[in-house]
Amino acid sequence: MTAVQRLRSAAVLSPPLLWTVVFMFVPYSILLVYSFWKTQYPIFVPAFQLGNYMELVRDPQYLRVLLRTLKIAGLVSFFALVLAYPYAYFLVFKVKRPSVRLTLYMAVVAPLWVSYLLRAYTWKTILGTQGVLNSFLVSTGILSEPSSIFLYNQAAMVLTLTYVFIPFMVMPIYAALEKIPPSLKEASADLGENRLATFLKVTLPLSMTGIVAGFTMTFCLAFGDFIAPFLVGGPDGVMIANVIASQFGAALNWPLGSALAVVMLVIVLGIISASDRFERLGAGRLT
């Protein structure tokens, strides 16, 4: 490479590199450094000790919240997948007119342009004791009086988060299904496979990349959420991000909050790299 070429490639690469260093590497390093510090009234002092991590292991509340968060993120991803896959399948293979397909696709994606807070808030007005759902159930006689079981619990959180994050499941699955050449299904049919077998042996494996990508995104987004517990969660709704927020705020214990954030980051990175491996394993392979 000549000097000019080197200079040119440096000029092209440096903005994204700079971005990564300034907005990813530096903050995460600061976070990591903080996680070894310790609290000392009135705030906290630098140190190098593992006390914060020990505390996360010693006090069962952190594991409990972590497991709860994993459970909720898992449920959200599961329900999003169960709803999104048939929808995307229907759009790609059953809807013949492109304009209808586009409209139905946008119906799922468009809510992304509305503030998340607003969408979560909407569920509050739907699920509340005097909400839309209760009014409907009471007016149709299904319930004799409004029920309070719809709001301020984990089910309401799963419902809200599924609704909010489902576009991230639909989009990659739609893209993966769209890329499957119709000739493959025809070939499968020519070889005497029925439609179920064709789906299981051709369509599903070829759309696996979309499923994995969608699942990963939905899971990580739900895993880090702290608005849903605040808006529609009940007294048992606290998730890991809320605990981190409380350590940085109420407890004024940034070191412990940082340790928790590092643990969370490691989990998310672990999930992403696992899904990456999974995706590569299954990519384009037909059984």
Binding site: T39, Q40, Y41, D59, Q61, Y62, R64, V65, R68, P235, D236, V238, N242, V243, S246, A250, A251, L252, N253
Partner: peptide
């Protein structure tokens, strides 16, 4: 609450973590 703040906030967080 001085240095005792942690004990209070941890207890409150533990209630919500139950």
């Amino acid at each position: 609450l001085g240095p005792r703040l942690q004990a209070y906030t941890n207890a409150w967080n533990a209630v919500k973590a139950q």
